[in-house]
């Protein structure tokens, strides 16, 4: 029993050292995917058909195929494309962490864009009309009226998507990245002690996800209009309009 605990402790110590890799992939692809999703959302409501078509194709392609296949395509498939393999881009594509982040950015941006699109459609028309009535146009309407509502509406689904992304980072292990799952498999290859190692890894993912959920839930509470009555009861200043 004591030997058992010692083993679990030493494995956990090894796995914890891989946590930064997992978090790095999550942070980079989370930020990039959100930025890209914002662009895709804008394209989805564009007046001309081309951006709308691009957004729809993007969503179709990346939501219709498994992420693991996208990762393999970018990592192994693109490496056989001469202008990538022998061009300046190779510096980036050579790196499996970059390939994972790129695949996750493309894939998750498609999902997040759908969340934003749904939230955009759910922003009450009345608020936008009221904004217009106050003389707001374009960017100011977006920043003062649409965006705050949109963020509040989208946040619960967005939080879910971030949790999904945390889980997806484990796919990096399939292309030689030594993230939590990668290290776990490495340890198993040497020790053949499957159960303890995978359970320790699972516990780490649960901890990361619990932390993220708590953070996002706190953010949701802060943005909750109904509870944050005092701050919203102050009428917005209109100076920037003059």
């Amino acid at each position: 029993m004591g030997e058992h605990l010692t083993f679990i402790a030493s494995v956990t110590a090894l796995l914890v050292r891989a946590v930064p890799v997992t978090l790095l992939i999550l942070a980079v692809s989370g930020v990039c995917a959100t930025a890209l999703a914002t662009g895709l959302t804008a394209m989805s409501v564009a007046r001309s058909p081309l951006p709308r078509l691009i957004q729809r194709t993007w969503t179709f392609l990346f939501r219709g195929t498994p992420l693991i296949l996208q990762i393999f395509m970018i990592y192994y498939g693109f490496a056989m494309v001469p202008w990538i393999r022998h061009g300046i881009l190779w510096t980036a594509f050579r790196d499996p962490v970059f390939c994972t982040c790129l695949a996750m950015t493309c894939c998750c941006s498609a999902y997040i864009a759908e969340i934003f699109r749904g939230a955009l459609a759910a922003v009450p028309r009345g608020e936008i009309e009221a904004g217009r009535a106050c003389g707001m146009t374009g960017f100011m309407l977006l920043r003062r009226v649409i965006a705050p509502s949109l963020v509040r509406i989208a946040l619960p689904s967005y939080s879910n998507e971030i949790i999904m992304m945390t889980k997806s980072t484990s796919l990096a292990s399939t292309i030689t990245v030594l993230d939590i799952t990668g290290v776990a498999q490495q340890v198993i290859a040497h020790s053949y002690r499957t159960l303890e190692v995978f359970c320790a890894a699972a516990a780490l993912y649960l901890l990361i996800n619990a932390g993220l959920s708590a953070l996002l839930a706190a953010l949701e509470r802060r943005l909750d209009v109904d509870r944050a009555v005092p701050s919203i009861s102050v009428p917005p200043t209109l100076e920037p309009l003059s």
Binding site: K167, S170, T194, L195
Partner: peptide, 12 residues
């Protein structure tokens, strides 16, 4: 089951 990566569940 919703917090652990599917890949880990399969491998486990």
């Amino acid at each position: 089951l919703r917090g652990v990566p599917e890949l880990l569940v399969i491998l486990l």
